[in-house]
Write a protein that binds this DNA or RNA. Structure first.
Lengths: 237, 237
DNA sequence: ACACCAGTTGAACGATCGTTCAACCTCGTT
DNA sequence: AACGAGGTTGAACGATCGTTCAACTGGTGT
């Protein structure tokens, strides 16, 4: 498709518009961002933009597709590289969003979450794309939870738990922005950690009940216990 | 201060503007709502509005104060009336927000949460008021959790748990709006219920460890156990 | 040399934005 | 009856909104 990958600072018009719009929508929101600002930031004239995109609404949709493409390489891959343990990856992901908030001075938060509350009601196409972003985010987390299968309770709905992780993160970021500080986010993450500890503890109790006194039942392989203090990253708070 | 309480449909200009603005900000967001729309909905002329409020930004602040005043009588009091058990009040509160979403066709969500992500970055006064709304919300929940003292683990930070409840609700509402359906919200609430069950279970285990075999230690009063299936309201999912 | 066309330019458009203000109405007080 | 104060009226303002379009540029195919 693309002749040369425009990874550097020299990118095509379309890409420059998408980047500028993504950043500005994230910083100020969709309605608060004027087309003129996007054009100035991207160094592009109105005609060029309307040659690439039919209008501002369509631009929003393409920005959301752009965010979906970036989700893996820019968000999830670094987290997987930073933490190997599947459960710790969940909290490394939290730490990464936290770091983004610190860099921005406790502003902005999650670009998708912001747009979700601003435009999803009156814009069906955007709503669908936001939903796809959330779904992709949760699917990646769900993969980690599946990898931690043996440390979680048997009947646990891991898909639901993955979405719950997203729930906690978005809710935590919202309160952090309202408070003007990261304390609410850190506390939400700490509470989530407590919940995960409870889940792992419950799973251990299940195993104990299943194999009560080193008398292994039929076909029960040893549960491959890990060191109890396996927490590579420093806890969020 | 007020000669007669304007509870009925005949209210003063100020009140009508506040109501219309509150509803419209909730439905469409702050930037997407034009002053002209507020005026039309409130049946008021621009001069009158600018006689009551210096401008749109100040109006937003007064709307947030208005929401803070309404939080008790319109949100929390009905929940306390609907459920007596302190923990069930938490989930009755969730059910009330859920009912609001159903009435609105899975739109809108929490008025404060929406504004939190839209304006808190570029509007310090509004940010502070949003923070106060969240704090008041969590304080009320915290009161319930304090009342359930004996059913929760000893060292539990109930203030933090109350904010966590808010976190889960806001995150759940966000995903529900993105999905266009209440399933994500219901699942988030179910997951929160699971967490509360784990907490109550942990508390019971603590009590058991403290009083191992009906041999009460010094100064340990019986923990006043409740019936295990005390769940007056039907669960969210 | 010419046609062609994707892409760019920037002035200009009508609509809507939030806001202003001089005139006006409606009271209670004197 | 005269007055002043609190509140209302609605036309109008400049700024900005998202968008259009005729003219132009640079590169490619023939």
């Amino acid at each position: 498709m693309n002749a040369q990958e425009p990874t550097g600072h020299e990118a095509g018009t379309r890409e420059r518009i998408l980047r500028a719009a993504f950043q500005l929508f994230h910083e100020q929101g969709y309605h608060a961002t004027g087309v003129a600002t996007i054009l100035r930031e991207a160094g592009v004239n109105p005609g060029s933009m309307y040659h690439a995109f039919p209008g501002k609404e369509t631009l929003l949709e393409h920005v959301l597709e752009y965010a979906l493409e970036l989700l893996g390489p820019a968000v999830m891959d670094p987290v997987e590289a930073a933490a190997a343990d599947p459960v710790e990856r969940v909290f490394a992901l939290m730490a990464q969003y936290r770091a983004g908030m610190v860099l921005a001075g406790c502003r902005m938060g999650c670009p998708i979450g912001n747009l979700a509350l601003e435009v999803s009601d009156n814009h069906p196409e955007a709503r669908e794309l936001i939903h796809r972003n959330f779904a992709a985010w949760a699917a990646r987390v769900r993969g980690w939870l599946d990898a931690a299968d043996d440390r979680l309770p048997r009947g646990l709905d891991r898909e639901r738990l993955a979405r719950f992780v997203l729930t906690v993160m978005e809710g935590g970021l919202m309160q952090a922005r309202a408070a003007g500080g990261l304390a609410p986010f850190d506390e939400a993450v700490a509470q989530l950690r407590d919940y995960f500890d409870a889940l792992e503890s419950r799973a251990r109790a299940e195993v104990r009940r299943r194999a009560p006194r080193r008398r292994a039942p039929r076909g029960a392989q040893p549960p491959a216990r890990r060191a109890p203090n396996t927490r590579p990253n420093k806890e969020a708070r």
